[in-house]
Simulated scan of single mutants.
Amino acid sequence: MRISNNLVGLLNFITFLLSIPIVVAGVWLTKQGSTECEKFLDKPVIILGVFLMLVSLAGLIGACCRVSWLLWVYLLVMFLLIVVLFAVTIFAFAVTNKGAGKVLSGKGYKEYRLGDYSQWLQKRVNSTKNWNKIKSCLIDSKVCSTFKDKYANDTLQTFYSENLSALQAGCCKPSDDCGFTYESPISWTSNVTTVSSDPDCSAWQNDEKVLCFNCQSCKAGLLDNIKSNWKKTAIVNIVFLIFLIVVYSVGCCAFRNSRRDNEYWK
């Protein structure tokens, strides 16, 4: 056996072992998931785990048993995975190159406007069907309940100095343009002397299950959060892409070795 075959076999054996807890986690989510958000993840997790399991088995058997056609299938899948991952990484950078929170004078947090972000992302959150699911997830994750408890004892000035996250600033409080009177982090009173054209002002309610979850600012806060996470993911993808290219190159050597060995034994 050549070194490249052994290396491909070892890498795929490790990948196979890693795929087992991924499949188990997907099955657990199917059985134990109590919210729509948790159940939404079960099928993708199971599919990912089964995919890794099958590909790693193909690579492991192909490399260790000199089965050339299995190695060929393995390399084809690896090539397609590299192409897809490259395209996804470029797409992630493209759709997250726009948008940023607006810095407010004397405030520790920013305000977010939906129009500042890419059209593709805006279409996703402006879909009523998509947003209802996202809103349900945000409520289930208790983003604003945690926010309320954390800043419950803040005075107005103390609250204004807090460094709020994009989701907290967009979904858990009304826009500063509304001119509402502060009572608590999630309780604000409308000021009849202040008239704002911002539609988010009429969407705001002090009900914990409503707040500003129907506001454009909440959608913008979510997109800012997605933008930050996608950029981090894209950087990880680049590292993973380099790793895949190295494994693919070693796999090509193993495939060539297997063909030579098979020809020798004929």
Rank of each mutant, 00 (worst) to 15 (best):
M1V: 14
R2G: 15
R2K: 14
I3L: 14
I3P: 05
S4R: 09
N6L: 15
N6V: 10
L11C: 15
N12I: 14
N12P: 14
I14A: 15
T15P: 02
P21Q: 14
P21T: 08
I22Y: 05
Q32A: 15
G33M: 10
S34I: 07
T35S: 14
T35N: 12
T35W: 09
L41E: 04
K43Y: 13
V45F: 09
I46E: 02
G49A: 14
V50T: 02
V50Y: 06
F51D: 02
L52D: 04
L52P: 00
M53H: 11
S56K: 01
A63Q: 02
C64D: 05
C64H: 05
C65E: 08
R66G: 05
V67E: 11
L70F: 07
L71P: 04
V73W: 09
L75P: 00
L76V: 12
M78D: 03
L80Y: 09
F86L: 13
A87I: 07
T89Q: 04
F91T: 13
N97L: 11
K102R: 15
Y109A: 02
Y112Q: 02
L114R: 01
G115R: 00
Y117R: 01
K123L: 12
R124D: 07
S127P: 00
S127I: 10
W131T: 04
N132L: 14
I134A: 09
L138E: 04
D140I: 03
S141E: 12
S141G: 09
S145P: 05
S145G: 10
T146F: 13
K150V: 11
D154H: 06
L156A: 14
Q157C: 07
Q157P: 01
Y160E: 14
N163F: 00
Q168Y: 04
C172E: 00
K173C: 07
D177P: 01
C178Q: 01
E183W: 05
I186W: 01
S187R: 06
N191M: 15
V192Y: 15
V195Y: 02
S196W: 04
S196K: 02
S196Q: 12
S197C: 08
Q205E: 11
N206W: 03
N206Q: 08
N206K: 06
N206F: 05
D207E: 10
K209W: 08
C215D: 11
Q216R: 06
S217P: 02
G221H: 02
G221Q: 02
D224F: 06
I226S: 01
W230H: 05
K231V: 06
K231W: 06
K232M: 10
A234P: 03
I235V: 11
V236G: 08
F240N: 05
I242E: 05
Y248G: 11
C252P: 07
A254P: 00
F255Q: 04
D261T: 06
N262D: 09
Y264Q: 12
Y264N: 14
